Amino acid sequence: MAKVIHIRNVPDDVHAALTEAAEARGLSLTKYVQRELEQVARADFAVQHNLAVIREVQAQMPPDMDPELTLELLHEGRRE
């Protein structure tokens, strides 16, 4: 079920900028802010997921592995 968020003490200039951005896209302020919050949440989820993957890979790497070799293998993998 959807939740309600109330935001207090939004500075006038921020409110005006959000309202203007919403109007420019033909959206209500509520729909615009909702869409922006969804994008922020998805981006944060991606960052957290990527961080978990990085930590997992780091845990599997030998502690004495050469960082230059690591970068070389990374670049090689991207070319494939």
Rank of each mutant, 00 (worst) to 15 (best):
A59Y: 03
V33T: 15
L69G: 01
V40G: 02
V10W: 03
L37Q: 11
I7E: 03
E20N: 14
E36T: 12
I54Y: 05
L37K: 04
A21T: 11
E68Q: 06
Q58A: 15
K3G: 09
E76K: 07
F45Q: 10
V47K: 10
L71F: 03
V47G: 00
L27S: 05
Q60P: 00
D64S: 04
S28E: 08
G77Q: 00
D44E: 14
L51D: 07
E20V: 12
V53W: 01
L73M: 09
A43K: 12
A24C: 08
P11H: 07
E80H: 06
F45G: 04
V47Y: 01
K3Y: 09
H6S: 13
G26P: 10
H49K: 09
H49G: 01
P11W: 05
H49T: 13
E76I: 00
V14R: 07
P11F: 04
R55W: 00
D66Y: 01
I54H: 04
A43D: 13
L51S: 10
H75T: 05
R55T: 06
V57C: 03
L69P: 00
A17P: 05
N9F: 04
M65L: 15
A41W: 08
E20L: 15
A52Q: 14
Q58S: 09
Q58M: 08
A22K: 02
E56N: 11
R35P: 00
K3N: 10
L37M: 14
N50A: 15
E20H: 13
M65E: 02
